[in-house]
Amino acid sequence: MLVEFNDLENLFHITEPWYVHDCIFNESQKKLDVYLKVYKEALLSCPNCGAGHQPIYDIADYDRTWRHLNFLEYPCYIHAEHPRTDCKKCGKKQRVEIPWAIKPRAGFTKLFDAWIMKLVKDMPMNAVSRLVGEHDTRLWRILHHYVDHALAVQDLSQVTKINTDETSSKRGHNYITIFVDSEKKNVIHVAKGKDAETWRACKEKLEAHGGRVQNVTEVCMDMSAAFIKRASDYFPDASITFDKFHVIQEANRAVDVVRRNERNRCADLKNTRYIWLKNEKNLTKKHKKPSIS
C-alpha cells in the first residue's frame, strides 16, 4: 500500500493545526527529520487560562526538536513551528502546549517516553541507553517524571494488608525496606535502611495518600523483634503474620544446628546438610534408604 504525503500526519501521529511540511532522510547521520508547520488561520487554546478559539500571535520557526519513535531502524526527529496565542480573555501572549510531548522543552515525544518506560521494566537503564542511542541521564529524567507523578497521585485509601521486606540496593550494606499492599500488589513506600523506624515512614506515607492506620488489619514481616515492636506501635489494630520464607529459613537453620551437634555422635549425618533441606518427594532412593540398623 502506498502512503500518500497527506497521510504522513497519521503515520507520525500528528494532529491539526500542525501538518507535515517536509521529511528529509539524512543518509550520513542515518536519521529522519520531520518538519511540521501550523495552519496560520488556526484557533488555539490559551496555555495560561485555557480559553479556546484564540488567534495565533506569532510563530517561532522550527525552534523545538523532539526525538520520536524510530522510523524503521532509523532515529526520527520532529522539528515544529511553535505558535504563540494572543489571548483576548487574560491578555497573555504565550507559546501553546505541544500535544505530542509532555513539556515543550522535554526533547522527547510522548510515544518515545512510552517506549522507554516499556523497556526499563525489563532492562537496566544503561542497556536501554545503548539501544536507543541516548545518554542515560536524559532517559532517567523520563523515568523520574512518570514515577514521581504516579507517586504524587497514589491512592492508598483501600490498603488493609501490608507486606514488608528489606533488600540490598547496591553492593555492600546499603539497604532499603519495601512496603507493599499485598492485595493490590502495589508498592506503598520504599524507605532507606532496614531499621525499625522505617515503619514510621510507611505510616506517614499511608496517611499522606488517604490511608488510615485503623484500616490496616494485617502486616506480614520477618521475625525481627524491633520490627514487631514498631509495627505494633504504628499499626496497633493489625495482626502480625511472619513471612513464610523467613519461617522456613529459621526452621532450616535450626535443623542444621541440630545436625551439626549430633554429627559427632552419628557418622551417618556427615555430608547430609542439603538432604535435610529437600522436600521428601524430591529425595532419591539412596537418600530415603535407612542406613542405621
Rank of each mutant, 00 (worst) to 15 (best):
residue 177 T to Q: 04
residue 139 L to A: 05
residue 185 K to V: 02
residue 282 N to G: 02
residue 267 A to K: 12
residue 226 A to I: 05
residue 133 G to Y: 03
residue 269 L to E: 10
residue 261 N to M: 08
residue 116 I to R: 01
residue 178 I to N: 00
residue 29 Q to E: 15
residue 212 R to F: 08
residue 53 H to D: 14
residue 15 T to M: 09
residue 267 A to C: 02
residue 109 T to N: 04
residue 287 H to P: 00
residue 67 R to P: 01
residue 241 T to C: 12
residue 92 K to P: 00
residue 101 A to L: 02
residue 26 N to G: 08
residue 222 D to C: 06
residue 35 Y to K: 09
residue 280 E to Q: 07
residue 150 A to R: 14
residue 165 D to V: 03
residue 232 S to M: 11
residue 121 K to M: 13
residue 75 P to T: 06
residue 94 Q to L: 15
residue 113 D to I: 06
residue 145 H to M: 11
residue 267 A to Q: 10
residue 54 Q to Y: 05
residue 173 H to R: 10
residue 76 C to L: 09
residue 3 V to F: 05
residue 127 A to K: 15
residue 147 V to H: 11
residue 197 E to L: 14
residue 214 Q to C: 04
residue 154 Q to G: 08
residue 253 R to Q: 15
residue 117 M to E: 13
residue 225 A to T: 10
residue 57 Y to I: 00
residue 76 C to S: 13
residue 72 L to V: 15
residue 116 I to D: 01
residue 160 T to I: 03
residue 54 Q to V: 07
residue 10 N to P: 01
residue 275 I to A: 03
residue 190 V to W: 02
residue 257 V to T: 11
residue 139 L to M: 02
residue 204 E to K: 14
residue 265 R to A: 04
residue 280 E to R: 11
residue 71 F to I: 02
residue 33 D to W: 03
residue 84 R to C: 07
residue 99 P to F: 14
residue 17 P to N: 04
residue 8 L to S: 03
residue 3 V to G: 06
residue 36 L to Q: 06
residue 223 M to I: 07
residue 227 F to Q: 00
residue 185 K to W: 01
residue 205 K to W: 03
residue 14 I to S: 05
residue 281 K to V: 03
residue 278 K to L: 05
residue 253 R to Y: 13
residue 142 I to L: 03
